[in-house]
Design a protein around this nucleic acid. Sequence first.
DNA 1: GCAGCCAATTATATCGATATTTCAATGAGG
DNA 2: CCTCATTGAAATATCGATATAATTGGCTGC
Lengths: 247, 247
Amino acid sequence: MANTAYSNDIARSRTSDLYDRIRDDIIQGGLAPGCKLKIDGLRERYGAGGTPIREALSLLTADGLVERLDQRGFRVAEVSDEEFVELLAMRCWLEERALRQAMHKGGKEWEEAIVVARYRLSRTPRVPPDVSQAANLDYERCHKAFHWSLVAACGSNTLLRLWSQLYNEANRYRYIARLSPFERPYIADEHDRIAEAVLAREADRAVELIVAHYTRTGQLLKTTIPAAIEPKPAPTLPTDEDELTSS
Amino acid sequence: MANTAYSNDIARSRTSDLYDRIRDDIIQGGLAPGCKLKIDGLRERYGAGGTPIREALSLLTADGLVERLDQRGFRVAEVSDEEFVELLAMRCWLEERALRQAMHKGGKEWEEAIVVARYRLSRTPRVPPDVSQAANLDYERCHKAFHWSLVAACGSNTLLRLWSQLYNEANRYRYIARLSPFERPYIADEHDRIAEAVLAREADRAVELIVAHYTRTGQLLKTTIPAAIEPKPAPTLPTDEDELTSS
DNA sequence: GCAGCCAATTATATCGATATTTCAATGAGG
DNA sequence: CCTCATTGAAATATCGATATAATTGGCTGC
């Protein structure tokens, strides 16, 4: 699904381009949860025809970022406290299995891929999206690539597919909570220690570390999310300028 | 995702209609694995414009039934022995968790829903798709509803979503292998015993039974699939009438 | 005053036509 | 004889226009 990794192939279709842009806008909060996605509004916003926009939105339903209501258009998927908790639990569970299998089956190339991914991550500064969106996307790419590299050798494409799905969905919550880099200053160390445990094939420790890694982020989010998602009942502005209207 | 359950709401869009029809055609083998899905061909076949077809295909990528190649159109997703094995393993694993949680959290309504689903399943005859497609779809609906009812109370929508995804994908293999009802004559008994174990809250036994249930189908498939998917390297006809061509 | 219906408006969904890209066959050059 | 560029044909991707459905606001009748 979400083909985050590839980027520089020539001749990308409008649809794929829109898919990426809209996805990023949803994840980063440019399009708020629950927001109605009017086709005309999007056409103006992204400068494209209705067909590729619809197609991109259809693809995004697969990632759980967009909801499609028959004859009633599209809207940005809602977020909720409970869903995040579920997501987190599910991810920990999948991760454990994937990681153990990868450590069991992984060979030299796997190890080396981890080393590379970890190096790249360490060399890519973490930049808040409102400072530089491009730089932030760079970091995100490296971050996902690193975590992916750990489980890549698990031997089951099916498992990896689900893993990736949940990664993306959980990722969105990070942005919604607007976690700044300062709230996790030692995150690079955590990554390093995880990588070391994995490379040393210390399965129990690796699992423990990575679950703690996820959970710690989760704790931060749980305290931050309510503030970010509750304001909905009380509409901020009397004018409906928070929906994506065309004129 | 795959909204199998609903069917008789008024005012369905062309896209949703096509989604269902194409999905059924892929699952039931009317559109062979790997088959190129030319838009013009589909337009003629289903009598619809290109836009809703594209949209339906985009939605189907979420179910893993269709593959989208940028600038190169759509094709029916391939099937493989390995993928099926992965799928099966993954499903057993998810099922165990879902089932245990459901048995832990489920209340009276959950139990009663199982009883109803089981009754409906027992009253719906299993009909091969080539005898009556409609009757077969009825059975499929009941079958999924029954299995769904067992895990429905697991408390995690995320888990249920993944469960449903994998159910649909695995389902496809049943059709590919063309398992006839005769090869599993006692399947109704299996369902009954599973339901009983679940309702009696005997977790270990329930898990054992349902995993055996899945695995037994899997065994049958593994012996049948190779015959069904191998013929590809040797094209049956010199004319390319096996692809979906327009003229 | 309020429920329910109708018309005008808005937005969605769909079509047919066109621009772009890929694919396949052909021919020139090494 | 094989490799690589070229060109014509086929298919994809996209646009603008239109049909169709949902929604809003006002109006009538109780």
